[in-house]
Structures are given as structure tokens and as C-alpha cells.
Amino acid sequence: MTSRSTASLRVISDPRPVLPSAVLGMLIFVVAEMMMFAGLMSAYTIVRAGALGWPPPGQPRLPVEATAFNTAVLLASAAFLFFANRAYTRNRDLAKRPLFTAMALGAFFVVFQGYEWVMLIRQGLTLTSSIHGSFFFLIVGMHGLHAVAGLTVLGRAGLKLSKGLLAPSTFAAAQVFWYFVVGLWPVLYFMVYL
């Protein structure tokens, strides 16, 4: 009988989710993506640890300094996205400028990486030239794909923002994905370039 009496005391309230569905869904997706990159990175680490020299002889050196600059550009884009969010919570119209700056910086990052790729391919580092090249293009390319996807997500949010239709949860989900793309990059830079 005790269970019945406690049950009758239950207060029925509409459950308020801790996280909006869009954000929760995106977070789950990001966890799966992180595990994919973890798989790539562990494979890379194992092969690199077993190799006699790294990078293998005859392969070009990676542009460490230029990419450090590019890393800074990507981090700046995250900072502008943060400003965009702050502005969004106060006055939505003020969010446009930092959001588009963040996107421009992100696009610069992708284009610059592409330029680097072209230079490296000219110098003889290709997907099939060595296991070093294979992993370099696979990992950086996979991140590049995510960066392009992230720019698309931000672009969609920007489009909705300029129409005044951007819901807070959609914007939050887009931010989660872009922060993932940005936050992942320094790790990849550290492991692949250095």
C-alpha cells in the first residue's frame, strides 16, 4: 500500500528537457564523429610509432608555420561565433556581422588548406606516395569535409537569421557543430604536423 500512497503524491508537471532536442541530437552526432576521428588518430599513431622514420625519407616537410597561422584563423572564427551568440541573445540584428565574419574566416581556412594541398602535391606528397601521405590527406581531408559541412550549417543559420526565422535551438546546434570542427583542429595539427 505504501507504493500507492507515494504514487498519489506525484506532482505531474510537463517535463522540461535539459537540452533542446536539436542540441542533444547534434551532441550525439558529434560524439560519434569524435569516435571516428579517434579511430583515425589511433590508427595513425600506431603506424607512425611502428615506422622507421617520420616523415619517411624523400617526402616533403609539412608547412608547419603556415598551418599554425591558419589554425589561428580557425580559432578566430570560433571566437566570432561566440560573439555572434552573445549578440543574438541581446539583439538578433547585431548577430549578423560576427556570424558572417566567422563564416568568412572558416571559408578562408578551408581555401588555405586546399592551397597547401596543391603545393604539397606539386612537391610529391600524394595520397599514394607513402603511408605518411595517405594518412595526411585522409585525416586533413576528413576534417576539411567536416569544415565544409560546418560552413553549410552556419550558412543555413545565417540565411535564417537574415530572414528573422532563426530559432535559438537551431542556432545552438549549429554552434555545437562548428565548435567541434574548430576544437578538433588543434588536436589534429598537433598530432599530424608536429
Partner: peptide
């Protein structure tokens, strides 16, 4: 499933290549 499938997707991309 979602926390374990990532490494296999990475492996599948590598195998496909």
C-alpha cells in the same frame, strides 16, 4: 552503437581507399 561505430567508419574509409 554510436560510440563504437566511428572507428569502423574510419576503417571502412581506409579499406575503401
Amino acid at each position: 552503437f554510436m560510440s563504437s561505430v566511428g572507428p569502423l567508419i574510419a576503417g571502412a574509409v581506409m579499406l575503401f581507399m
